[in-house]
């Protein structure tokens, strides 16, 4: 499927990646080429085939309900580019 500029703009927006207006055309071509490449999957008859959810033949392991972590605000916050006290900070969001 060939993507147009508007579609690329929408994808970039969903992925939260700023794309300059003049880059949109080039990206549309690149992404369309990749889509054309993967679209050969359309040839395969997959009627009734279970989509793979996990390649590992095992069941979901469960942990016990015990507090084993936390009280590590220093480790959680140490790499934060911005913050105050014990908080992370971001530009103000208006709900």
């Amino acid at each position: 499927m060939a993507l147009d500029k508007a579609a690329v703009r929408k994808i970039a927006r969903l992925a939260r990646i700023r794309v300059a207006e003049e880059e949109l055309d080039g990206l549309a071509v690149e992404l369309s080429n990749i889509l054309t490449f993967v679209e050969q999957l359309g040839e395969v008859d997959t009627a009734g085939v279970e989509p793979m959810t996990s390649v590992v033949a095992m069941t979901l392991p469960r942990r016990a309900d015990a507090v084993t972590d936390g009280n590590t605000a220093d480790k959680v916050l140490v790499n934060a580019p911005e913050g105050t006290g014990n908080f992370f900070a971001v530009p103000k969001v208006v709900e």
């Binding site: 690329v8 970039a12 969903l14 990646i17 990206l27 990749i34 085939v49 279970e50 989509p51």
Partner: peptide, 29 residues
């Protein structure tokens, strides 16, 4: 950026079945 955008697209509404789910089925095969 290119891969994140392709990945975003193949999961997005209206395209999931044609791309992502199809790929999961072929992965089974």
């Amino acid at each position: 950026r290119r891969r994140v955008m392709i990945g975003t697209y193949v999961l997005s509404a209206g395209y999931y079945d044609a791309y992502y789910n199809k790929a999961r089925q072929i992965r089974t095969l």
